[in-house]
């Protein structure tokens, strides 16, 4: 177990900037999630740390030691992949044993280790099977076991849940969390799924174009997004962004524009915080209903608010229909303010 650090890392593939002067410090035992849109080079950061790809510039440390010149096999990290990456020519036993054999373990000691790990992950009955005979969930358990079995200094996970169907995804997600709570191995987890990130992370770094848009605890990321990119990326449905000039004076006061020019401010309102009321209610924004999306206990509605599409919530959608007029109300404390030009968060 060890702390992990990226210090001023730069890496580009042709025109694609993977990392541009990127610095990250991950504490010993921390579950750290790299969150970003697909194709932004998140996986490459893991490859850099694992030593598969050389960085163009910068230093990487594992346990305080500069590993930039250390070959992958000596970096003591383990990896879990979206594709599982089980060795198809080896059975489950040999897949689990592979990292141990590379360390010179053999015979009875090896067998004991493999069987113990198989027991913890419920793979005892599968040891003689080939990966192609396993289900997706079983494969990812084997992959977890193969990564865990030698107690690496750090765990690198590259979208490990993306190939699983919805039910299995939750199951393996819990398994990953359980493994982390038990072993407290420093984990670097890459995903494009913000919900997954929120559920698992101690801290999340949101990546955009090779640099960090924001790095914070999940609650802080949700409560105080640093800019409109993070605001839209974290939380489902994404946050509504509106020009502040839409607000009439009383709401403007409520939104605490505090004398700022409304034209220079973008307003952020999470759909969860925007409540659709019946027409005629006072002190709210008037909007026209476009679509209704029942969500079980309540209904999402998409509405047109002076030319901007917004999403709002309604406790009971039954009495609304597309084309109706509704009023959208929000609590003063739920408003996020961003600079309209730079997209950066304003105040506090």
């Amino acid at each position: 177990m060890a702390a992990v650090a990226f210090e001023r890392i730069a890496k580009r593939f042709g025109p694609t900037v993977v990392a541009d002067d990127l610095t990250l410090r991950i504490a010993d035992g921390e579950f750290f999630v790299l969150l970003g849109p697909s194709g932004c080079g998140k996986s490459t950061l893991l490859h850099l740390l694992a030593g598969i790809e050389p960085a163009d510039r910068g230093v990487m440390r594992i346990g305080g030691v500069d590993v930039s010149a250390v070959p992958p096999q000596q970096r003591d990290v383990a990896m879990v992949f979206q594709s599982y990456a089980l060795y198809p020519h080896l059975d489950v036993f040999e897949n689990l044993a592979f990292p141990l054999r590379n360390r010179g373990l053999s015979g009875r000691a090896l067998r004991a280790e493999v069987e113990r790990m198989a027991g913890t992950l419920g793979l005892g009955a599968l040891l003689a099977k080939r990966p192609r005979d396993l289900s997706g969930g079983q494969r990812q358990r084997v992959a977890l076991g193969r990564a865990l079995i030698r107690r690496p200094a750090a765990f690198l996970m590259d979208e490990p849940l993306s190939n699983l169907d919805a039910a299995l995804r939750l199951e393996i997600r819990e398994e990953i969390k359980r493994v982390h709570q038990t072993h407290r191995i420093t984990t670097l987890y890459v995903t494009h799924d913000q919900e997954e990130a929120m559920a698992l992370a101690d801290r999340i770094a949101v990546l955009r174009g090779g640099s960090i848009a924001q790095c914070d605890a999940p609650e802080a990321l949700y409560a105080r997004p640093a800019d409109t990119f993070v605001a839209r990326f974290v939380g489902t449905p994404p946050m509504n962004l509106l020009p502040a000039a839409l607000l009439a004076p009383p709401e403007a006061a409520a939104a605490r524009l505090q004398g700022r020019d409304p034209a220079s401010v973008t307003l952020g309102l999470r759909p969860q915080d925007l409540e659709a009321r019946d027409a005629g209610a006072a002190g709210a924004l008037e909007a026209r209903v476009l679509l209704l999306e029942p969500a079980g206990g309540f209904t999402w509605l998409v509405a047109d608010l002076a030319g901007t599409r917004v999403k709002a919530r309604r406790a009971d959608g039954a009495r609304l229909a597309p084309g109706d007029t509704t009023r959208l109300a929000f609590a003063a404390g739920s408003v996020h303010l961003f600079d309209a030009a730079s997209g950066r968060r304003l105040e506090r």
Partner: peptide
């Protein structure tokens, strides 16, 4: 042969030639 298998072999403790001989070549 998927890139991930080569990466997995290296991370699991194989040298360059080890990954070639133990994983890539058999596949």
């Amino acid at each position: 042969v998927p890139d991930d298998l080569y990466i997995a072999a290296r991370v699991d403790g194989c040298s360059l030639l080890g990954a070639f001989g133990k994983v890539m070549l058999p596949l």
